[in-house]
Amino acid sequence: MATEIRVPTLGESVTEATVGKWFKKVGDAITADEPLVELETDKVTVEVPAAGAGTLAEITVKEGETVNVGALLGSISAGGAAAAPA
């Protein structure tokens, strides 16, 4: 089962952020709480940690793109390796 990576709440008046940098690429192994992506706003720069361990399965927003709070950034597949086709 995949775990979604979403833009967290960034502050009371902040509604959007720009994806600054991805620290991992698709297929990389991830540990829980490891920083995955850096988001930049006019007030703060924040790192979004992994909600769980697994493999970075998908990146849906590229560096430099603007996203709203709650937007899907990517997903993590369960386990230490990408799922093999059946």
Rank of each mutant, 00 (worst) to 15 (best):
M1F: 08
T3E: 14
T3F: 09
T3V: 00
T3S: 13
E4G: 03
E4R: 07
I5R: 00
I5T: 05
I5N: 02
R6N: 05
R6K: 12
R6I: 05
V7Y: 06
V7E: 02
V7K: 03
P8S: 04
T9H: 10
G11L: 10
G11C: 08
E12K: 13
E12F: 10
E12P: 08
E12M: 15
S13F: 02
S13K: 13
V14A: 07
T15P: 05
T15C: 09
E16K: 13
A17V: 05
T18W: 09
G20C: 06
G20T: 09
K21L: 13
K21M: 10
K21R: 13
K21E: 15
K21V: 05
W22C: 05
W22N: 06
W22T: 07
F23N: 11
K25E: 15
K25C: 04
D28I: 11
D28S: 12
A29F: 02
I30H: 02
T31N: 11
T31D: 10
A32T: 14
A32Y: 01
A32K: 15
D33A: 15
E34P: 06
E34I: 03
P35N: 03
L36C: 04
L36W: 02
V37D: 00
V37A: 03
E38L: 03
E38T: 00
L39D: 06
L39E: 04
L39P: 02
E40H: 03
T41S: 11
T41P: 05
D42R: 05
K43A: 09
K43G: 11
V44N: 09
V44T: 14
T45A: 03
T45D: 00
V46Q: 05
V46R: 01
V48D: 01
P49Y: 08
A50L: 03
A50H: 03
A50R: 01
A51V: 13
G52V: 13
G52E: 15
A53K: 11
G54N: 03
T55V: 15
A57E: 09
I59F: 02
I59D: 10
T60Q: 10
V61G: 07
G64F: 12
E65L: 14
V67F: 13
N68F: 04
N68W: 01
V69F: 09
V69H: 02
V69K: 04
G70D: 08
A71L: 08
L72Q: 07
L72F: 11
L72N: 03
G74Q: 05
G74S: 07
G74M: 04
G74A: 00
S75E: 06
S75T: 04
S75D: 01
S75K: 09
I76R: 01
I76M: 06
I76K: 00
S77E: 08
S77W: 01
A78P: 00
A78L: 13
G79L: 01
G79T: 07
G80H: 15
G80L: 12
A81S: 14
A81I: 07
A82L: 14
A82N: 11
A83D: 13
A83I: 11
A83T: 06
A84L: 14
A84D: 15
P85S: 13
A86N: 05
A86M: 14
